[in-house]
Simulated assay, not measured.
Amino acid sequence: MKTSDFAYELPQELIAQTPIEKRDTSRLMTLDKRTGTWEHHHFYELPDFLRPGDCLILNDSRVLPARLLGQRLPGGGACEVLLLIDRGEKTWECLVRPGRKMKPGTKLSFGGGELTAEVTAELEGGNRLVRFDYEGIFLEVLEHLGKMPLPPYIKEELQDQERYQTVYSKVVGSAAAPTAGLHFTPELLEKIAQMGVGIGYVTLHVGLGTFRPVKEDNIEEHPMHSEFCTIPQETADLINRTKAGGGRCICVGTTSCRTLESWAGEDGHMEARAGWTNIFIYPGYRFKVLDALVTNFHLPESTLIMLVSALAGREHTLAAYEEAVKERYRFFSFGDAMFIH
């Protein structure tokens, strides 16, 4: 299967640059995975498509304000550091700019010296190890000095950092938001729970690899990035009860989907697990536990549109995307949503 099989034409002006004013007023396309038929709705209508006895699984990862803007010392030249992975001992693996001026031994300052750092090593592939020095708790320093690491296709400055967090985000560690969840409000979640729909949480810390393009012509040759995920016992129990009772397991976002499918037994039985996953889902994959998916509209030729195509079929997916373009839906992280059932 070719990467080009998942291409589609998207006008630049349909890439959402800012969040919609009220989260759940975004549009919602429903897509029947069997017939390929779609309907146009709004996200606040999602409860109309849920049934008592279903369960909704959400990713409660919280985005780290991991983008630091500072100066190189001495001299004061500007620099940018993006935190990727905590390597312990106050050291993080980072993306840095300008790379050619950030050699090992380079000293850095952020927030007028509130946070200082030193580049300690250059890794294969160009990432750096950076050791930080600060007073107090690092996460609190980041909340004060860091900016949200918005995807490269968003050019606007984010006015309210919380709009790149889900309302249920809890466990800090993602480099990008699990964006399908951005549409939910506390009131909408409460309404869904009162219907008799079980709500469970998993944690998958989204890495920047989610934006990495598929460069191989043959998708099976793409090296999938790894991300850390956790399934608590109570969520595993909820899923098992739901399936035993004939309800549907509905994942919010490709991250929740990949977490469950990574650890589900062949018979769909879930157990509490934690670990790294590099599962790559594309057409031909047999879903073990997922029945339906809430998701955003994804980049052409991305691993995410391949996952959606595995669930709904490539032809159905591309036809729905063509309809979304025609109807001027908003695309990508701050864009509109689909419910594939």
Rank of each mutant, 00 (worst) to 15 (best):
A117H: 07
Y168H: 09
V252A: 12
R87N: 09
T116K: 11
V289T: 15
R72Q: 06
F110P: 02
E271L: 06
G126H: 07
I305G: 02
L260Q: 02
Q165H: 04
I340Y: 08
D5A: 10
P300K: 08
I239R: 04
V141K: 13
P19A: 10
A324V: 05
I281W: 08
T254R: 03
V252P: 07
E187N: 09
Y153T: 08
I20Y: 13
L204Y: 10
K326V: 00
L238Y: 04
A312C: 06
D217V: 01
H316Y: 05
N59S: 09
R27N: 11
T18M: 11
Y153W: 09
S309E: 07
L108Y: 04
Y168W: 08
L293M: 15
F132D: 08
E118S: 12
I305L: 11
N240A: 06
C229M: 07
Y201H: 14
Q17W: 05
P149H: 04
L204R: 11
H41N: 15
L68G: 02
L123V: 05
D336W: 07
F49E: 14
P19H: 08
L83R: 02
F332G: 06
G146P: 02
L64R: 12
Q71D: 05
G125N: 10
L290Y: 00
W263Q: 00
L204Q: 09
N127V: 02
Q194K: 13
P149R: 03
T230I: 14
D60Q: 15
S302A: 08
F184T: 13
I192Q: 04
W38I: 15
L95E: 08
H269W: 04
